[in-house]
Nucleic acid binder design. Structure first.
Length: 562
RNA sequence: UGGGGUAUCGCCAAGUGGUAAGGCCCCGGAUUUUGAUUCCGGUAUUCCUAGGUUCGAAUCCUAGUACCCCAGCCA
């Protein structure tokens, strides 16, 4: 506890931490053990980051531990390909499970013998109805189900059948091990839920050892118990599964302390909500609307990494949004805020001109060149300076010049003086146009006394422009991204109907030469433009930068209003 | 006409009977060699609705309303 008032923000807390603190205080548990249980059947997306931050963050906060457990109980959907990607994503996010890497499939042996125990206790039976029949017997949401005619098989018969299932004597779907609970339960999950099904399939870890596989509810609850998980945190849709989670432990007489399940609302983000389903994620990749799982427009963690979103920003966002039980959708602006906040601190500044307009400084000696010291990051002086070459011909941003500027326009205009960042003040003297009346070039004069971009005379120069030296600049490819979807597709609409045709824009830019030596993954702020990260597609001839997020632009915002 | 949940500012979210935190967004204004950052200031007499209890209610009671989840041998 803090002993004095401090400026530090109050540590974020929420109902789950309250429960944990009460459990710790009451001695219901000695230490906190959580787990992150991905199914290795797809890539992790930003929604998962909330669960990762919650589970690992909680363990960290209370000095406990968090297990990484792959929930690999369905061999037909899972693949080892995903295991490595998931592990890399979690490490990238900044969390570590140490030696606590587990697989539900590690427990197939004990899980099987627990199932025999349930049979012996008369709490599970082998059903031989078809899938359709089982559905029909289950009843509906509002009407009770009916007992299967096989429900009262003898324990010996059940045992024999179950062993035969395990031995591979039956085809897929011929039999099913079910919990014997209550076919009339108002909670459908309790109407004799499936425990084991027959699946003659190769498992990514156990190979062909098994042809029966446990169902999620059964495997999850017992895996948690086996690992000594104290707080099993999952999303809201599992709320009505909790009675079954508890039933499994109770039925086996699992000793206290038992694990307990708590549910929280999943993370939804505006603009990408429809994409955060496995189905649509796969669809985007398979239909070729994106270049792959790590296409920077995707909501996967791999994509965010490639886009230049930092782990710190993601962690910060997850801290800020809180943990509660109401369904919610966080605005994308929240994410952008966290990204800018982090990148502002760590990204080195560089200059890039996206839409060049040539400027000739007529009173600057021909053939002369100067170098200026430019700070790498004003937020972090320890990053030092770089040398910036300057010459008689430069390029500025076309949008930084207006022949007939509106009021309060600080940028370049005929007769107006602006500062070239780190260089000189220049004044526009002449506008050169082509036959169509298009501005092709500007003739300006500079003030030799403004070297470095400053004079002592107290002159007010409101506008500061970024620029590129014609003699020194390099070409670079800039990739700008927008939301993949224009909106959420209606229920009867294809996802394709909402595809944003302008979600990717390629821009040829002129960048300062220092950028040619950058490394993929390096973050930069291109002054007045936005945050960029160098992409691995870069070649020595042509560096490629992905725009992570643009700068806040209050001038553009104001213009839009008028 | 089943069961389980949730309703507090545009978006998140504290609040646990003592008189509506905070963040994002938005709007002003100051500073600024990035119209960025930073910094100040503004933004819910009101907590889904209606009754009730109480000196006092977002918090308790009653009755409603809205939204989300569940009928995979998926997780």
């Amino acid at each position: 506890m803090n002993t004095s008032e401090s400026s530090a923000p109050a540590p974020a807390t929420h109902f789950i931490h309250e429960i944990i603190e009460a459990d710790l205080a009451a001695g219901r548990c000695q230490t906190v053990v959580t787990r992150f249980p991905p199914e290795p059947n797809g890539y992790l997306h930003i929604g998962h980051s909330k669960s990762i931050c919650l589970n690992f963050g909680t363990a960290l906060k209370y000095g406990g531990r968090c297990h990484l457990r792959f929930d690999d109980t369905n061999p037909v959907k899972e693949d080892t390909e995903y295991v490595e990607a998931i592990k890399a994503n979690i490490h990238w996010l900044g969390f570590d499970w140490g030696e606590h890497e587990y697989y539900a499939s590690d427990y197939f042996d004990p899980l099987y013998s627990y199932a025999e125990q349930l049979i012996e206790k008369g709490l599970a039976y082998v059903d031989s109805l078809s899938a359709e029949e089982i559905r029909a017997y289950r009843g509906t949401l509002k009407s009770p189900g009916q007992n299967s005619p096989y429900r009262d098989r003898s324990i010996d018969e059940n045992l024999e059948l179950f062993r035969a299932m395990k031995a591979g004597k039956f085809e897929d779907g011929a039999h099913l091990l079910r919990a014997k609970i209550d076919m009339a339960s108002p909670n459908i999950n309790l109407r004799d839920p499936a425990l084991y099904r027959i699946r003659h399939a190769h498992h990514h870890r156990t190979g062909d050892k098994w042809c029966i596989y446990p169902m999620y509810d059964y495997a999850h609850s017992l895996s948690d118990a086996i690992e000594g998980i104290t707080h099993s945190l999952c999303t809201l849709e599992f709320e009505d599964h909790r009675p079954l989670y508890d039933w499994c432990l109770e039925a086996l007489g699992w000793p206290e302390p038992r694990p307990h399940q708590y549910e929280f609302a999943r993370l939804n983000l505006s603009h990408i909500r429809p994409l955060m389903s496995k189905r649509y994620l796969v669809q985007m990749v398979q239909t070729g609307h994106v270049s792959g799982w790590d296409d920077p427009r995707m909501p996967t963690l791999s994509a965010f990494k490639r886009r230049g979103v930092t782990p710190a920003a993601l962690r910060d966002m997850n801290e800020r949004i809180g943990v509660a039980k109401s369904n919610s959708e966080v605005e994308y602006a929240m994410l952008e805020f966290c990204v800018r906040e982090d990148l502002n601190k760590v990204a080195q500044r560089r200059m890039a001109v996206l839409d060049p307009l040539k400027v000739v400084i007529t009173n600057y000696p021909e053939g002369q060149q100067e170098n200026f010291e430019a700070e790498n990051n004003p937020e972090d002086p320890s990053t030092g300076h770089r040398s910036l070459a300057f010459g008689r011909e430069i390029y500025i941003e076309r949008s930084d010049f207006m022949e007939e500027p509106p009021k309060k326009y600080f940028r370049l205009a005929p007769g107006q003086e602006v500062r070239l960042k780190h260089a000189y003040y220049i004044t526009c003297q002449e506008v050169i146009k082509d036959a169509e009346g298009q501005v092709t070039e500007l003739h300006c004069t500079y003030d030799p006394n403004s070297r470095g971009g400053w004079t002592e005379d107290g002159r007010k120069v409101r506008g500061t422009l970024h620029w590129a030296s014609a003699a020194h600049a390099c070409k670079a490819e800039l990739r700008h991204y927008d939301h993949l979807l224009l909106g959420a597709p209606a229920a009867d609409q294809l996802l394709e109907s909402q595809l944003n045709p302008d979600s990717l824009t390629i821009v040829e830019a002129l960048v300062e030469p220092a950028l040619a030596a950058a490394q993929p993954g390096e973050h930069f702020q291109f002054l007045r433009q936005g945050y960029y990260v160098m992409d691995a597609d870069s070649t020595p001839e042509k560096p490629v930068f992905n725009r992570t997020v643009g700068m806040v632009d209050s001038w553009a915002k104001q213009q839009k209003k008028n």
